[in-house]
């Protein structure tokens, strides 16, 4: 599991070379910019998948009639059928219903962790991005120290201190993610700081705070949705790993990592409880990565 800085390749482009052929003239209207990208099949499927995921998180009962927690022992470990699309688990619970209901947990914990990383990352990153050398050195060393701990292990330390639970693994993953966001925000702040419009504002005679609030801050924050989309997949991966270890939500919670941990005992006789929740995690991460990369591509070069 990798919570740490993840190299980003422009996969959306690699997967679809129609997007942005070299030397293409930039289309002028917004619609013209968006339209060809929506045609990219990978991106379109990803967006559709994420939309369904959000629906499943908000209204899980609209997707399935079965209860995620109550099963029929007599119907334990039935293979996938039309009635039970993903089969049933050891306790006769519908795996499809559990996977659908699990969406909410995975997304919520992932978003929660991300919010923590972002909040600290933004504040520290902006501090580091100021012209003050000492502030920059100090904050950057904080990032170095935080990222010198492997993400999973740092998260495990946090859980040792705080105890198991959903909120606590969100905090754990959130802390581990701070340096990653902090460094991006620092770079962005430096870019904005040196931009022409800030110089103009200084020449114009605006005060330091006025420049910061009205010109620097908004332009730094523009980057946040981009970084957030690119990294949310990683956060979800990290969270699922901790839940798999039993550090997050506890059984019978239908969380994807927890479900996979439970499936470990029945693998010998049944493949379905160990396949579908994992597929859900992987597809979610792929979808977020593709969308994130597409957004990043669109913002490239105009962030500052």
């Amino acid at each position: 599991m990798n919570i740490q800085t993840r190299p980003l390749a422009d996969l959306s482009v690699a997967l679809d070379p129609q997007v942005n052929p070299p030397g293409a003239v930039e289309p002028v209207t917004t619609a013209a910019v968006i339209a060809p990208r929506l045609l990219s099949p990978g991106l379109a499927i990803s967006l559709a998948f994420l939309f369904v995921l959000l629906l499943a998180a908000a209204f899980p009962r609209a997707f399935t009639q079965f209860d995620p927690l109550i099963g029929d022992y007599a119907l334990g470990l039935k293979p996938p059928s039309w009635k039970h699309l993903f089969g049933t688990d050891r306790l006769g619970r519908d795996v499809f219903a559990r996977t659908i209901h699990g969406t909410r947990y995975s997304l919520l914990i992932g978003l929660g962790g991300m919010a923590i990383s972002l909040a600290f990352g933004i504040v520290l990153g902006i501090l580091a991005g100021q012209r003050n050398r000492f502030l920059d050195e100090a904050t950057s060393r904080v990032f170095d120290v935080l990222s010198s701990f492997p993400g999973v292990l740092l998260a495990m330390l946090v859980v040792t201190f705080l105890g198991q639970g959903m909120l606590n693994i969100a905090i754990a993953v959130g802390i581990a993610g701070i340096p990653k966001f902090g460094r991006v925000i620092r770079a962005q702040t430096q870019l904005v700081r040196d931009a022409d419009y800030v110089t103009h504002a200084v020449v114009y005679g605006l005060g330091r705070w006025q420049i910061f609030i009205r010109h620097v801050l908004p332009n730094v924050l523009v980057a946040v949705p981009v970084i957030a989309t690119v990294y949310i997949g990683n956060t979800i991966l990290a969270v699922s790993g901790l839940s798999f270890l039993g550090l997050g939500p506890q059984p019978p919670t239908p969380e994807w990592g927890v479900m996979l941990a439970e499936s470990r005992d029945v693998l010998r006789v049944a493949w379905w409880p160990g396949v579908f929740p994992g597929l859900a995690i992987t597809l979610t991460v792929i979808a977020f990565t593709l969308v994130g990369n597409a957004i990043q591509k669109r913002f490239e070069g105009r962030l500052a």
Binding site: L237, G241, F244, G257, L260, R264, G278
Partner: peptide, 9 residues
């Protein structure tokens, strides 16, 4: 994008 533990499973 695949979780380590799922790959293991």
């Amino acid at each position: 994008s695949t979780p380590v533990f799922w790959l293991g499973i």
